[in-house]
């Protein structure tokens, strides 16, 4: 943003974190947390991160809601696989998915979403041909998984970041 406050969002998050940790709203702690937030912003400048911008804040809410529902659903699915008395022969395997997104922040968010959902796991991303390799615990139909990731997550992430 400017020289004093290069990353306003990060600084705000640091301040909120400090206040949450101390469980107060007293002026002294706000001052101390504000100093910490400024310092954190300056330190991040030294790392020179790529600038990213959130384009569509409303899509974030939609995405968060979708991910929450998917996490609950896949928790139940994975728990069922583990708890069935004799684990039925689960076919799990690796899956290659072509991805159009190139934005680093979008890819990071996608990695978090895929890994945080039980049953799917991000293995690696090849930036040269843009294929993403994931591991799926219950790989019955490859098309469904490719559809889920492309249509449910990637479309929204593209709206947010690109």
């Amino acid at each position: 943003m400017n020289r004093w406050l290069p990353f306003p969002l990060l600084s705000a998050c640091l301040l909120v974190m400090w206040l949450l940790l101390n469980q107060t709203l007293s002026a002294g702690q706000i001052l101390l947390g504000g100093l910490l937030a400024l310092l954190g912003g300056w330190l991040l400048t030294a790392l020179q991160p790529a600038t990213g911008r959130v384009r569509n804040p409303r899509a974030i809410v939609t995405l968060a809601f979708l991910v929450l529902i998917d996490i609950i659903r896949s928790n139940i699915a994975v728990a069922a696989i583990i708890l069935v008395p004799r684990p039925r022969s689960v076919t799990s395997g690796f899956l290659n998915i072509p991805i159009d997104m190139r934005n680093r922040y979008g890819l990071a968010a996608l990695a978090c979403i895929i890994t945080a959902t039980p049953g799917t796991l991000w293995v690696q991303f090849n930036p040269r041909n843009g294929t993403l390799m994931i591991h799926v615990l219950d790989l019955v139909d490859e098309g469904i998984w490719i559809d889920t990731i492309k249509c449910r997550y990637e479309r929204l992430l593209l709206e947010i970041f690109e």
Binding site: V78, P87, V90, A116, P118, G119
Partner: peptide, 20 residues
């Protein structure tokens, strides 16, 4: 699931349940 699933790549999925 760490005990019951068969190979490493299947077992990695199990602790995610507790973590999420």
């Amino acid at each position: 699931g760490l005990l019951r699933l068969r190979n490493f790549y299947q077992r990695v999925h199990a602790p995610t349940l507790g973590a999420t």
